[in-house]
Amino acid sequence: MYGITNCGSVKKARIFLEERGIDYEFIDFKKFPPTIELVKNWVEKQGIAKVVNNKGMTYKKLGLKDKNLSQEELLECCVQNPSLIKRPVVQRGDILLLGFDEEIYKENLC
């Protein structure tokens, strides 16, 4: 699981996994920012619109709504500002989950 320790969605996801005894490794974006290759992999699987958190404060703070950035430029922004990435990111085999949705977690992780 990738995320930020104090993120509400990350906290919910961690509680969900812990209550069900599902082991996971937590990687904090603030301590270990994702590589461009990793973010590209997520975008290939889910699309840039699902990877970028366009409702978050970082997106608004950077004024990205008003900029017409290419996918490559958005990828670079995500690497430079990991808070732009929808959290948490859970990878388990071929499964890639972005954000926390209890029903989707139940379907894919339990």
Rank of each mutant, 00 (worst) to 15 (best):
L74C: 09
K12C: 01
C78H: 06
V51W: 09
D94Y: 05
I15C: 00
E37A: 15
K60I: 08
P34V: 10
W42K: 02
E37Y: 03
R14Y: 01
Q71A: 02
Y24M: 07
F32R: 12
Q46V: 10
P82V: 11
N81I: 06
E76A: 10
D94L: 05
N53Y: 04
P34C: 04
G63K: 08
C110E: 15
L98C: 09
N68Y: 00
N108T: 06
C78M: 15
R92N: 15
K61Q: 13
F26H: 06
Q80H: 08
A49W: 07
E37K: 13
P33A: 04
K65N: 12
N108D: 11
K31Q: 14
L98W: 03
L64N: 01
L97S: 07
D101G: 04
K106E: 12
N54M: 11
K106I: 14
Q91T: 10
K106S: 05
Y24V: 00
T35V: 07
D66K: 12
E18Y: 02
A13W: 02
V89L: 15
P34K: 08
L69A: 01
D23Q: 15
A13L: 01
E18C: 01
I48L: 13
K30P: 04
L84H: 11
V10C: 03
E103F: 10
R14A: 05
K61R: 13
N6K: 07
L98N: 07
I48M: 07
E73N: 06
E37S: 15
L75K: 05
L74I: 03
C7I: 00
D94Q: 10
E73F: 08
K60A: 14
F100P: 11
S70L: 07
L62A: 08
Q80G: 11
S70F: 11
D94C: 03
V89C: 06
G3E: 00
I95S: 10
